[in-house]
Design a protein around this nucleic acid. Sequence first.
DNA 1: GATGCTAGCGGCACTGAGTGCCATCAGCAA
DNA 2: TTGCTGATGGCACTCAGTGCCGCTAGCATC
Lengths: 250, 250
Amino acid sequence: MSEGNSGESKPRAGRTADGRRQLRGALAVAALDLFAAKGYESTTVEDIVAAVGVGRRTFFRHFRSKEEVVFPDHDERLAGVVRELEQAGESEPPMAVVCRTAETVLDMYLADPEVSLKRFELTRQVPSLRDREIVSIDRYQRVFARYLRQRFSEPPDAELRAAVTAATVVATHNHVLRRWLKSGGGFDARAALREALHEVTAEDTRVSSPESAADTGEVVVGVVRTSTSVHAVREQVERVLREIGENDSD
Amino acid sequence: MSEGNSGESKPRAGRTADGRRQLRGALAVAALDLFAAKGYESTTVEDIVAAVGVGRRTFFRHFRSKEEVVFPDHDERLAGVVRELEQAGESEPPMAVVCRTAETVLDMYLADPEVSLKRFELTRQVPSLRDREIVSIDRYQRVFARYLRQRFSEPPDAELRAAVTAATVVATHNHVLRRWLKSGGGFDARAALREALHEVTAEDTRVSSPESAADTGEVVVGVVRTSTSVHAVREQVERVLREIGENDSD
DNA sequence: GATGCTAGCGGCACTGAGTGCCATCAGCAA
DNA sequence: TTGCTGATGGCACTCAGTGCCGCTAGCATC
């Protein structure tokens, strides 16, 4: 395995843009193979470029760091998420947009289970890669929060609600993804995410005042402490229903 | 400022355990000063140890990395959080424990505003430090989630609920902390966090069925779609109130 | 007060990631 | 053929982090 890598003989790397992508892919594959064989820490960039047959300097022209070779398309994916959020119309409820986008992110993992599982195994064993993953997840969360902040721009709590909602959606996504990865990709994660998001976001799509709830046609959630008496609860609920009735055509 | 650091002349570093802590502190202070003056990237470990007057090797005996000198007590703090969670009794509602612990974490920042603000400025400007901060925040979230998973161990969704709840609490904490830091430490963050947690966790402590809600004495949240008619809403609410009334002493 | 033990310290050498610089060469157009 | 451009290769360099060894301050023991 010292010279002449698997399969094609590569007399010289092509200088075309397509050759560049191929080389990038070859580097990523070789890196993952070596990481799996020798371990991440014990594999030097020198080893990787030797396996592909290119110079060390070239590696860092394709990847900003040794860690990035494990997540070669994270930037691209994040950009895709930003695009999807930007292209969403004003008519669609913000929550629906974010949930849909979260499903898109999940799909990215589901699209190539083999690679996803390999990466998962690596990130579980290598602390620095785990940290890297955490950071990139946080990027998604920030993007979600930023989007929701724009869309929520009504009450003074918009920022808090956006942050919490983004955290909720991302945590739910991660939970489902993690279960899927741990199971070795053996169940319908897409459906599971959809269900979980439905369950979880039902709490968060609440609006503070019943009036705006009736206006937006969203979901209204009445919150009461059970320590208060049933009479008091009934009185509160009656008042809310009266207020809703004033704005409702029915 | 090339030799003889501020204040005490240090003829030779003491070998005692107390001297060790003093040296650690001196290194941290010198590092933060240099980072503020020259920038993080432009400051080498060599510079830091030169300012204190110790060897380069000594720095890495006190801090695992150059980044860690910015967050010298994160491990300690996390351990404190774990301890606080472990010491919480079974009688206290899990949510209350987590919220209380989140307030403890906030207090750690509020305890030394000067240092917190200095760190904030650094983490805002230096990407690698920002990443580090994100990772350490995630550690808190994981600890919270683990605790809640144990306490929630009833329904099949315990894991999801624990993850989402932890994410919610942490996001709320971060939101308040961030506002406090951005304001330069100019308002009562403790009260703000308490209020925000109250507002935010009210949604998450919901229980699925009204019966169990009445039993636990927690909070019950009724969810209705405003697209349904007011009559239907009223009917639903009346039924819930009846069910609660059967278990309520009032 | 001399002796030995231990814990930190200093320094040296080394690995390896990441960068700047420059020469080189493939590909393409004129 | 000539010139331009973009990707590469290689070299040298900085700097974080580690292993190793010798040293010494502090402390206990005799």
